[in-house]
Amino acid sequence: MIEVIAAFLAWAGIWVLNTRLANGPASNTRAVQLLVPVLFGVTILVVWELVVRGLNVPMVILPAPTSIAATIGESVPTLWNDFVQTFVKGALSGFAIGVAAAFVVAIFVDRSEFLSRGLVPVANFLAALPIVGTAPILVMWYGYDWQSKAAVVVAMVFFPMLVNISAGLQETTPMQRDQMKTWAASYWQAFWKLRLPAAMPFLFNGLKICSTLALIGAIVAEFFGSPLSGMGFRISVSVGRLSLDMVWAEIFVAALAGSLFYGVIALVEQWVTFWHPSQRKGR
């Protein structure tokens, strides 16, 4: 019981501190803007730990953060193996293929009025559908190894990317395109020097959306069959054995991989689209 009260006190204490920090004089400095969410995250971990211990919540319902951390520490090789199988082999390769294919098709769409009126509405429609559902079919076609996971990722990534890239390629104003014409620029010159740079913010927006989709696709596809490693495989096996600390460890790895993937894309975006208003520093 003492732990539960301590949890409550910790929550209240950090909340007061956070309110002070957020409304205080230093609230616009970078340090405070980082500190406040970190403190909030720490509160959740502390409260979680204390409540689990205080109420003796059984392991099969919710393991404490410390025991999850212990599991992560013990099973680094397994987690690394699963990470390579799911993320590097399945998600990344599928992501690359899907984005490249969408890019090529988007150029065709850009060149042909007919395709842009016919294919883009279809792609828009398909992008809103639950494409994860194709996972059982693709696993049946491409076998249990990473190829089928990559195929699911390609299917999930392709349509959002196509929609975003072709919207981006339409982004230039008529004036800019006329300017290119007066300089007698060929299609490809105008493409590389005007339309592609103008499409970059859209392209990166699509890449960011798809980074999450890729990981989801690779993990969910493993629920339909996989070799003896992979994050989705480990999650479904551990759930069956009720060893939830392992499940949480995999979730931690998935969260870490997802945020890092997103972060890398955001960094490249900053570097490529430095000219875009959304990247300006200081307000």
């Binding site: 909340w15 956070n18 309110t19 920090l21 957020a22 409304n23 609230s27 405070v32 803007q33 406040v36 969410p37 403190l39 909030f40 995250g41 099969v60 319902i61 919710l62 994860v132 980074s211 999450t212 990981l215 989801i216 993990i219 969910v220 629920f223 994050m231 989705g232 999650i235 479904s236 759930v239 009720l242 939830l244 499940v247 995999e250 979730i251 998935a254 969260a255 997802g258 945020s259 993937f261 997103y262």
Partner: peptide, 30 residues
């Protein structure tokens, strides 16, 4: 509430980069 904004909002945005769907089967079993 400014305190809520500063503490929750970064997590709400970060959580969109996390494949939350992967824990669905676990929640069902639990």
């Amino acid at each position: 509430n400014r305190a809520m904004d500063m503490s929750v909002m970064p997590w709400a945005i970060a959580s969109q980069t996390i494949p939350i769907l992967a824990i669905a089967p676990m929640i069902i079993v639990v």
